[in-house]
Amino acid sequence: MLETRDLYKHFGGLVATDHVSLSIREGELHAVIGPNGAGKTTLIAQLAGELRPDGGAILFDGKDVTRTPVQRRAASGLARSFQITSVFPSFSALANVALAVQAHAGHSFRFWRRAAHDAALTGPARDALELVGLGSRAEVPAELLSHGEQRQLEIAMALATRPRMLLLDEPMAGMGPAEGASMVDLLRKLKGRYTILLIEHDMDAVFALADWITVLVHGAVIATGTPEEIRYDAEVRRAYLGEETV
């Protein structure tokens, strides 16, 4: 469903993405792991369209989207969540998600009807909030939600755009164990319903969820395979897993 061919990106002398070729099949949960600075977020930014690669190609659904701007990629069903929570702080949780619904409900040149009372927006928005477990927090301004709840809100917004594929950038970043566990439950619910590219630090979560894992070190893919293969891959253990001990 999503494919990169020989993707290359450098910042000055630093190679952030070193000839990365990935192939993510429809319905798969594909995790990308790697130590800090491995270029995971840079990779997602290129896939989402916020960064333009210096070389190589990105194909979504077989179509070359390498030069497609971010909003067009999002509109064609490629949704992302952010590592650093990126919501609309002064809007309620419901309004945040309703805005995400609105993004995919045709144009927004509708000047008269009050958006907050528009069931076509708030209906799907409430569904998405229920799904991520924020149903009871709909009216709370996003800035007053806990960190974990804001992470859930991130996911709800991505889901509300009715994507065909999710790019999740460390959804568990900064979460406590309990919050992390409920996020794993949520991702398990989403698995199979969406094609997912997951970037995550939490190894337990990754090995529990992923169908396929790609290991990125210094911008380059050093291994790719099933969780079992990765767990026992000598090079991966040496380069990465060994340091943190799984």
């Binding site: 992302r80 990126s86 919501v87 609309f88 000047f111 009050r114």
Partner: peptide, 22 residues
């Protein structure tokens, strides 16, 4: 308060996110 107004306010608060939403 309309959809249009929400889109304009969203662009003020977080333009990057607005684009990521489509």
């Amino acid at each position: 308060r309309s959809r249009f107004g929400m889109a304009v306010q969203g662009a003020r608060i977080n333009e990057r996110r607005m684009k990521a939403l489509g």
